[in-house]
Simulated assay, not measured.
Amino acid sequence: MTTTSVSVVRTTPRVITRTLLTAGLVAGPLYTAVWLGQAATREGFDITRHPASLLANGGPGWIQTVNFVVAGILSIAAAVGLRRSIAGRGSRWAPRLLGAYGVGLLLAAIFPADPASGFPAGTPADYAEISARGMGHFVAGTIGFTGLIAGCLVMAAHYRSTGQAGWARYSTVTGVLFFGAFAGLMAGAGKPVTITAFGVAIVLGWSWIAAICAHHRQTN
């Protein structure tokens, strides 16, 4: 075997890990760009009244469905990359929980949210019927967001155990804020303040995923 062949064999696992982590680095910005692009162009959509999930309704709803699928696949890839790049405390559960977030996104594509609050255009403003698919979407969100929140806290424990206090604080704050926004959304009955806060939390969650993937990609 030549020296070049040995080098390729030795570096391939590292390249694979970095590629998987790159998926997590890309997932959030891509998801957010597609979501906000639709929010700005879909008739009747109000980002302070309508969560992103409602975009899966109507003629162009396939765009958000594809957005969920792509983001889910990229998140699961990132989870695999994270499992390959960390060791010690939380090294098993943190990737599994991030993977659960990805599974939740895939399930959200399979079970779209019901029309609500006047969206898509033509839906009554007070429409709030929950169908079987709508209940499936609620379950998908619970799986995904619980995975993300718990993943933040498990990664915080991992970072504390490895002496990375800044990353531990960042992970803890992200998990706590996301939990607060998710709880507020569940209790807020569609109020603009809770929907807006949850939209901000989504961006914070994706930013955290991108940040830890970039961090471990750099150190891998």
Rank of each mutant, 00 (worst) to 15 (best):
L25N: 05
S53M: 06
G205H: 04
A140S: 12
G205A: 10
G175T: 09
T19F: 05
G118A: 06
H216I: 07
T196E: 01
G199V: 04
A201E: 07
A108P: 00
P124S: 08
R49Q: 08
P29A: 11
P115V: 00
V66H: 03
F179T: 14
S75G: 14
T194S: 14
H137L: 00
R42N: 07
L98Q: 07
R160Y: 12
T12K: 12
R14S: 14
G190R: 06
T22C: 10
I73T: 14
L185E: 12
T123R: 02
A94Y: 09
F179Q: 13
N67Y: 10
T32R: 14
R84G: 08
A23W: 05
Q64W: 08
G151L: 01
V66C: 01
P13G: 09
G90P: 07
V9C: 15
T22W: 08
A197H: 07
T17M: 10
P192R: 10
P95V: 04
G141R: 00
G99N: 09
T65R: 07
A27C: 01
G44L: 00
K191H: 15
L54V: 12
G59C: 06
I209P: 11
R160S: 13
R14M: 10
E43Y: 07
P51W: 05
P95M: 08
A121Y: 00
A211V: 11
A40H: 12
E129G: 02
G44K: 00
L54T: 13
D126L: 13
G44H: 00
H158T: 07
V8Q: 15
H137P: 01
W93H: 12
G134L: 02
S117V: 04
G147R: 03
G102D: 13
P13T: 09
I143K: 02
G122Q: 03
A211E: 05
Q218M: 15
T17C: 09
T123Y: 01
P115E: 02
A71W: 11
P29L: 08
R42T: 11
L185I: 09
P29T: 11
S91F: 07
V9E: 15
A78V: 02
G81I: 05
A156N: 05
G147E: 02
P51Y: 01
A201M: 04
P95Q: 11
A113G: 03
T19C: 07
Y127P: 00
T65F: 03
E129F: 07
A187D: 13
I143R: 03
R169M: 05
A23V: 04
